[in-house]
């Protein structure tokens, strides 16, 4: 008996389609969460309690509850919460990206905040005396130094995000892991699961290399 190569090629094609969805969730989440996190970080550091208070609660909720629950809530929540007649059905994919963005922005915000607060006060003062504006100071003096400092913890989060994309299957999105489990039970085989594992590994290997390159690029100073 020869191995079912055709079935194997089919499996890979299916997994690739699932991986495409995972990768899209991944990139869109990063695309929105990286800037949103900065806004959240500023809100968290605001002198005004009216801003920092709610932001603190938001961060607590996002970090204190499971992402899988947040994904379900963002998807199903509007339907149940809105009054009769105004009910909308959020697109699954939009809901998934929105939930992941909200969740990751909270984590990113805390990393940014740590990074921003680790920059010595003297840097701000050395910029203020010759008259750099607040925005110039942040963009040209502070932020570049923050980026270097937060790269390692951001790397951790980004690698976790690759794996967390699997959670969006909870609202019926056929991402990589979903495809793999469906195939595994249809074929009564663990090969699809192992193959999915390899896919995740490859994605994170690429992410790790990219992060390493970024770190090397910023290694020109200490």
């Amino acid at each position: 008996m020869s191995y079912d190569w055709e079935g194997f090629v089919n499996l890979i094609v299916l997994l690739l389609e699932g991986a495409k969805v995972s990768v899209m969730v991944f990139f869109l989440t990063l695309f929105f969460a990286i800037p949103l996190g900065l806004l959240v970080a500023f809100g968290r550091m605001s002198r005004f309690r009216l801003i920092s208070g709610p932001i603190k609660i938001y961060i607590l909720l996002m970090r204190g509850t499971p992402l899988i629950l947040q994904i379900a809530l963002v998807y199903f929540g509007p339907y149940y919460l809105l009054p009769e007649g105004m009910k909308i059905n959020l697109d699954r994919f939009v809901a998934a990206v929105a939930a992941c963005t909200l969740n990751y922005a909270a984590y990113f915000a805390e990393i940014y905040r740590g990074g921003i607060q680790s920059i010595p006060k003297g840097q701000y003062e050395a910029a203020a005396v010759p008259g750099f504006s607040k925005i110039q100071t942040f963009m040209h003096i502070i932020l570049p130094q923050v980026v270097k400092r937060i790269l390692p913890p951001m790397g951790n989060e980004i690698i976790t995000l690759v794996k967390d994309t699997a959670l969006v299957q909870t609202i019926g999105i056929s991402e990589l892991f979903r495809v793999a489990t469906v195939q595994a039970s249809a074929k009564s085989s663990t090969i699809p699961l192992a193959a999915a594992g390899i896919f995740y590994l490859i994605m994170n290997w690429v992410v790790t290399e990219a992060l390493q390159m970024a770190e090397n690029k910023l290694n020109y100073y200490r």
């Binding site: 003062e125 010759p130 110039q136 040209h140």
Partner: peptide, 25 residues
């Protein structure tokens, strides 16, 4: 102003440390 602990901008070269304010401000 010259500070006790210098407060040079670590991510800029020596030259850029000196030119940054003249150029930007």
């Amino acid at each position: 102003m010259v500070f006790q602990d210098f407060n040079l901008f670590p991510h800029f070269s020596v030259l850029r440390n000196i030119t940054e304010a003249p150029v930007r401000v």
